[in-house]
Amino acid sequence: MIKLYMWAMSNGYKASIMLEEIGLPYEACPVDIGRGDQFAPDFLRISPNNKIPAIVDPNGPDGKPISIFESGAILLYLAEKARQFLPQTAREPYRVVEWLMFQMGGVGPMFGQAHHFRHYAKEKHPYSIDRYTRASARLYGVMDRRLRDASYLAGDDYSIADIASFPWVRRHERHGQRLEDYPNVRRWFQSIAARPAVIAGLKPLSEGEKRGIVVDEKSHDLLFGESQFSPRA
Rank of each mutant, 00 (worst) to 15 (best):
L4Y: 04
N11Y: 12
G12E: 07
Y13Q: 14
K14G: 04
K14N: 09
S16C: 06
I17N: 01
I17P: 02
M18R: 06
E21G: 11
I22K: 05
I22W: 04
G23N: 07
L24W: 01
L24F: 14
P25M: 10
E27K: 12
A28Y: 07
C29V: 15
C29H: 15
D37H: 11
P41E: 12
I46V: 13
N49W: 13
I52Q: 08
D57W: 01
P58G: 04
D62C: 12
K64I: 02
P65M: 13
I66G: 05
S71V: 01
G72P: 07
G72R: 04
A73M: 09
Y77V: 08
Y77F: 09
E80A: 11
E80Q: 14
K81S: 00
Q84M: 15
Q84H: 04
F85D: 02
F85S: 03
P87H: 02
Q88G: 11
Q88Y: 08
T89D: 15
T89Q: 05
A90F: 14
E92G: 00
E92Q: 08
P93W: 11
V97P: 01
W99V: 01
F102M: 11
F102V: 13
Q103S: 10
P109H: 01
M110Y: 06
A114T: 02
H116D: 12
F117Y: 14
F117P: 03
R118P: 06
R118A: 07
E123K: 13
K124W: 00
P126E: 01
Y132A: 02
T133V: 06
A137S: 11
A137W: 02
L139K: 07
M143Q: 00
R148W: 06
D149L: 13
A150K: 10
A150T: 07
A150Y: 10
S151K: 13
S151F: 03
L153K: 09
Y158E: 05
I160N: 02
A161P: 13
A161H: 09
A164I: 02
S165L: 11
F166Q: 14
V169W: 00
V169E: 00
R171F: 11
R171L: 14
R171S: 13
H172T: 05
R174L: 14
R174I: 04
R174K: 15
R174D: 11
G176D: 03
G176M: 02
G176E: 04
Q177E: 14
Q177W: 06
R178L: 11
E180P: 03
D181H: 12
Y182G: 00
Y182H: 04
Y182E: 02
P183V: 06
V185T: 01
R186H: 12
R186V: 02
F189T: 00
S191T: 14
I192C: 02
A193W: 05
A193E: 12
R195P: 07
R195T: 05
R195M: 10
P196M: 07
P196K: 06
I199L: 15
A200W: 05
A200Y: 05
K203A: 13
P204M: 08
L205V: 03
E207T: 09
K210V: 08
K210F: 05
R211G: 10
G212C: 07
G212T: 08
I213E: 07
I213Q: 08
D216W: 10
K218W: 09
S219I: 14
S219N: 09
L223V: 12
F224L: 01
G225Y: 08
G225M: 08
E226V: 12
E226G: 11
Q228E: 14
P231E: 09
P231L: 10
R232E: 11
A233G: 12
